[in-house]
């Protein structure tokens, strides 16, 4: 049984259809790179998965159990955690408070110490407000904050947005450590090839539909490009 199953997911923003019948699954410990142009529906899918918006049709199952629509607490308890696009850290909280705020949703190995071991640079910044950190360090806090909830599935939206190549490499190294802990990942990144390099499978969206899913190792850039512009491979 897959860890995550989406069947016939539709979502709307008022009159506009953002997702139109998305079917997708993810196995335990699997990593999926999700690609697509701006407005293809990637962020909507991420928001929907973690309960920030309800589907207009369809259902999301985690370990076979249907998630109540639009309930972020239930999604967190089921093991879904989001590293949102733009980090969206709590500015009034210190780095450590940001990391602690989501702790306790589930039991697991991601204690404060484990997060500091993954991102040692944050240990010295623990009392600082996140706004005083560099973009890369802020992304580390965002990843750490999501890990503190001990997720089974980590959703990373635009993971390298605004980061330098050096910092992006660091962030991806951290994601590999997360993979080694058996956590499933869905990674959205404008740099598709980088996300593909750490993934087991790739998927591509166009105008709210999945236009491609396939093994990361054998999906060619040509097939990705065709799916990116809406031509099914």
């Amino acid at each position: 049984m897959p860890l995550l199953e989406l069947s016939g997911i539709h979502a709307r923003y008022g009159e506009m259809a953002a997702l139109q019948g998305v079917d997708l699954d993810l196995s335990e410990g699997e990593t999926l790179a999700l690609a697509g142009a701006n407005g293809a529906g990637k962020t909507t899918l991420m928001r929907l998965l973690c309960g920030l918006m309800p589907p207009s049709r369809g259902e999301v199952r985690v370990a076979g159990i249907c998630l109540p629509p639009g309930d972020p607490r239930a999604a967190a308890a089921a093991g879904l955690a989001l590293v949102p696009e733009g980090r969206l850290l709590f500015d009034s909280l210190s780095v450590e408070e940001n990391l602690m705020i989501g702790a306790g949703a589930r039991a697991g190995r991601w204690s404060l110490k484990a997060i500091y071991d993954l991102f040692p640079v944050l240990r010295d910044k623990r009392t600082q407000p996140p706004g005083s950190l560099s973009g890369g360090q802020q992304q580390m806090v965002a990843i750490g904050r999501a890990l503190a909830a001990n997720p089974a599935i980590l959703l990373c939206d635009e993971i390298s947005l605004g980061l330098s190549p050096l910092v992006t490499r660091e962030v991806y190294e951290a994601l590999k450590s997360v993979q080694r802990e058996g956590i499933a990942l869905i990674v959205v990144d404008q740099d598709v090839s980088r996300a593909q390099a750490i993934s087991d499978r790739v998927a591509c969206m166009f105008q709210g539909r999945l236009t491609l899913t396939g093994p990361a190792a054998t999906t060619t850039p040509q097939a990705m490009k065709a799916a990116f512009f809406g031509d099914a491979a």
Partner: peptide, 13 residues
């Protein structure tokens, strides 16, 4: 946290 970002606060459980 709620005062800063209500939607993300809900995500944190």
């Amino acid at each position: 946290a709620l005062s800063d970002r209500p939607d993300i606060a809900a995500l944190m459980g």
